[in-house]
Write a protein that binds this DNA or RNA. Sequence first.
DNA 1: ATACTATTTGGCTGTTTGGCAAAATACCCT
DNA 2: AGGGTATTTTGCCAAACAGCCAAATAGTAT
Lengths: 106, 106
Amino acid sequence: MDDKTHRWCASRATVFKALGHPTRVFIVQELSKGEECVCHLTEKIGADISTVSKHLAILKSAGIVSDDKRGLQVFYKLRMPCVLGVFGCVDKIMAEDLRDRESLIR
Amino acid sequence: MDDKTHRWCASRATVFKALGHPTRVFIVQELSKGEECVCHLTEKIGADISTVSKHLAILKSAGIVSDDKRGLQVFYKLRMPCVLGVFGCVDKIMAEDLRDRESLIR
DNA sequence: ATACTATTTGGCTGTTTGGCAAAATACCCT
DNA sequence: AGGGTATTTTGCCAAACAGCCAAATAGTAT
């Protein structure tokens, strides 16, 4: 793999890596309904707020979400709605896996 | 986050995690052109064959590729073509980031 | 300025990942 | 069976990650 290709693949991989954690998948899912403040997300997730903040920072640096400080609170929102289409494909993969497992039983 | 939601998010995250490595992104890209044997992929990647084999195992267990042993060789192929659409979204995110960085300069 | 609240950052620990090399496995051929 | 090739598995080490706590920062209100 030449250097240029490697950098390209690495950039893409960064986005996927950002989505590669249950909490971060959950955050994206929640944000698909509209923007949320960190405190609200933290409640729903049920982890330490510092942990949630770090997850958000990862999503942000991958370009998946953007933040907006208003008063004391910071609101995060989805920056690229196409991520939801991505979920559609991932769900298809998961469904296919399920079918494979079932066909082993039959 | 309740237990059921967590399992759901974790399944999705597994697929993303599988795509979260430059080498594995490259493999998916290559396989989009058609099936390939491990040896051929290894050549293109330029890493130890055992390393490539592990990457393929990760993609396979995530349901992204499937394998087919024919004689001595094992051929891998994309199982869900929609992954390429996913790349389209990721590329959009990357392009957006680039624009943001440029807008800082202006 | 002080007190208070929301969020981020730094530091620590245990866990996971990625890579190579060596050994094991699987298949073919004679 | 024995030799050769393609691939996977195992063992090991260094680097990266995830989580919590405590400390730092930023904004608001008195």
